[in-house]
Nucleic acid binder design. Structure first.
Lengths: 337, 337
DNA sequence: TTGTAGGCGTTATCAT
DNA sequence: ATGATAACGCCTACAA
């Protein structure tokens, strides 16, 4: 008898002596006689019938009851938390989440998007890779597919997006250092320099300097794409002839790099403010002052935007900014040496 | 003119003057005349045709070219990295990844699994929630659906699983503390106590004590389900009449809790070894000694197991153990006070 | 090399 | 309240 076929709606119908459509009606709360409904449900249980969502989604012109999400990296808790925020919001609507990670590579991102489109997902959510371009999505937008960008805006496409208050948050964090007396403040930022979040946060850094009448010194701006690189960048800053007395780290990896470098160098006299909170921030010595983002809120806001679009909201593309919050813990309040 | 319909294979065929089947052959590298192929491809480009994967997956008896993955929490970098390991391995085979998070709740896990089954995923990968039961998956296993459990084994179902060397790793970490002179070692573990990883790691702790002829003192075993709870658990241990001189933390959250508590209490004289590495471990004071897991390897190994099963491997269920590695950084080498 | 017929499992439409 | 028929977009099997 071999592997037996999984029961279909027709099998259930035959068991009861009705038509597939009647079974369908039972399962979709259509108009069915009470007695018929019960017999159908009994047969469903007896046969262990499970509706086939693939087939259901195949109905005339219908889309897959799934949302495609592209993030740069799943292991990064920032993006993981964003994805978690998306998933719970989306599941509440009976949609499932399909994810892929682009590894920050535009080509991979595009092929993931192509796969999702081929699956006819109901909506697309993308954290764009650094150098990606989204003009190829124009026809999809025109056709009405909801597309929302997270954390970073799209390139070459007018579409909804949800971002953190990068520039404002960064300005606040640097101003905090200035208030505590610092006049030479190093910036350890993302790579590449063209990355949206890096540009915005650097701009916030400059805003703060401008606001205090301090000069912008290019020598104080360094770059590192991972923890080790950020640590090296930090060491370069500290070994300048006229070194900074404080550091502003432009993301979570840069913060870790700065903290690691200072720890290795045994320096506890350099003030630090990091962009994005870290789980162990409080346990550091001194505890790390940060400009905290709210990744779950970014994910949730983006998901809500998608759901509104799915509900028919055709208003023009909107940018949502999720506020940041300065959390003073000690490292940002150190006075200049 | 309204939203125009997306072009189908038939539209392309009509454009060229052939049959849909011929277009299908072109797209699947079937036998087609060179000249016909070129005309078809031209029409594909012209119309912007994209194959419909939903329909393709609907073929007789076919399954969705997707893998369903259930993890307890997306924001936890451990599980995020596991998922990343799965995703890259799986994508290399043209499969996409569908994820859901169970929030460590058996009910939610089961409903996610039901959704994935309804979608007819090609395989199921599950990090089981603490109190879940998988007997309901027996029929799927019998029917040949590849099912692999990660990080924790299944309950009530004989199936493949990939776990870390919890007991052995834990034994090694505690033995390390003993070698450095400690005789009273506290254990800060997961909750609930029935959780597989917690049980295994506690057993490793006891193995190490036994191996050194040290007594097992229940008063030294505490529990915390998140960072704050673990911090409180740590404080309880430190305020015992005969307090431990060293702590073994049973997971990453417990490690953070222990570190946070010691930092708040200003205690730098308590030795600590944590299970699972932390990004900032090196920047702590003292730097944190850990038993590192390899979450990406866990994910990759599980994915490879799934792929073998998809390739027809029908051998009996196998358990794969991914080794851990002790990384001595300082906190685990402190002598007893 | 290319075409025809049929079906996957479901739901919409129109009858009865 | 229920049934018959067709259709969604693709692929397999067989035929020409």
């Amino acid at each position: 008898m071999g592997a037996m076929r999984r029961p279909t709606m027709t099998d259930v119908a035959r068991e009861v002596g009705v038509t597939a459509k009647t079974v369908s009606r039972v399962l979709n709360d259509g108009p069915v006689a009470v007695e018929t409904r019960e017999r159908v449900l009994a047969a469903v249980r007896k046969l262990g019938y499970q509706p086939n969502l693939m087939a259901r989604n195949m109905r005339v012109g219908a889309r897959d009851a799934a949302i495609g999400l592209v993030i740069p990296e799943m292991g990064n808790p920032f993006f993981g938390t964003v994805a978690g925020g998306v998933e719970s919001a989306v599941r509440a609507r009976g949609l499932t989440l399909i994810v892929g990670s682009s590894d920050e590579a535009a080509g991979l991102e595009q092929s993931l998007i192509a796969t999702f489109l081929a699956r006819r997902v109901s909506a697309l959510m993308v954290v764009p890779a650094a150098s990606s371009d989204h003009r190829h999505l124009r026809s999809e937008r025109v056709a009405g597919l909801p597309i929302v960008f997270l954390d970073r805006p799209s390139a070459g496409l007018r579409a909804d997006c949800v971002v953190s208050a990068n520039r404002e948050g960064s300005r606040t964090g640097v101003a905090h250092l200035i208030v505590h007396g610092h006049r030479r403040i190093g910036f350890v930022g993302d790579v590449p320099a063209s990355l949206y979040t890096r540009r915005e946060r650097l701009q916030g850094y400059r805003d703060a300097l401008d606001g205090a009448g301090l000069p912008y010194d290019r020598a104080l701006v360094e770059t590192g794409h991972d923890v080790e690189a950020a640590a090296r960048a930090t060491m370069r800053l500290l070994s300048l002839a006229d070194p900074p007395t404080a550091l502003f780290a432009g993301n979570n990896l840069a913060s870790m790099g700065a903290v690691v470098a200072l720890s290795r160098a045994g320096r506890k006299d350099v003030a630090v403010v990091g962009f994005d909170d870290l789980p162990l921030a409080e346990a550091l010595d001194p505890p790390l002052t940060v400009v905290a983002q709210d990744p779950a809120a970014v994910g949730a806001a983006a998901a809500e935007m998608v759901l509104r679009r799915l509900d028919g909201d055709r208003s023009r593309a909107r940018r949502t900014t999720v506020p940041t919050r300065l959390i003073a813990r000690g490292s940002g309040e150190l006075p200049p040496r």
